[in-house]
Amino acid sequence: MPRRDYGTPTAPFPRGARPFFLVPIVCFIGLFIVFGLGLRKDPAILPSALIDKPAPSFDLPPLLKDHPGLAQSDLKGKAVLVNFFASWCAPCREEAPVLAGLAASGAVSIYGIDYKDNPASGRKFLEVLGNPYQRVAVDAAGRTAIDFGLYGVPETYIVDAKGSIRYRLPGALTPENLQSDILPRLAALRHQP
């Protein structure tokens, strides 16, 4: 190891920076670009290839003993909400009271899909926070979620009486977006199916 004494208040700049010390700034530039791209996107407009198209075909086993699972064929006949949730997802806990209130109002049937979750944890989650769903299915592998084009959990889809996806709401349901986005669309579907 060279021993040098830097007694002067400012040491001279070396001729070239060593590559090793460039790693942090290179990583940061990468991060900066990612943030910049993130900023330019309007996340309210999500890729919604499935809007007004039939829901993907799937058949998932039930999570609970006393509630049936969910398949594509169950989505026909009336407008319903399909809600993806998971016990490990914090916003899902936040939206639980909203879902519970909606279920109690009887305005619409809500079907749940427990996404990439341990079924025991999923059951406990519903025991603790209440079960707003008439049907609850397990998508342990997340395959159906991919077919739906899930953005993340929680996420809620409006499916019309013909089984077509009409709207998707990424993120947690809140009293506000329930009033402004979900309920008006459900009312419209009821009047002109």
């Binding site: 190891m1 700049f13 070396p14 920076a17 010390f21 700034i25 940061f28 530039i29 943030f35 910049g36």
Partner: peptide, 24 residues
């Protein structure tokens, strides 16, 4: 983002130039 870029980016550029002379 601009603020983060100037502060963090600036300090890391300074680091890339100056850190090699900090001899143990």
């Amino acid at each position: 983002l601009l603020l983060l870029g100037i502060m963090i980016g600036g300090s890391l550029v300074l680091y890339a130039i100056r850190a090699p002379i900090l001899q143990p």
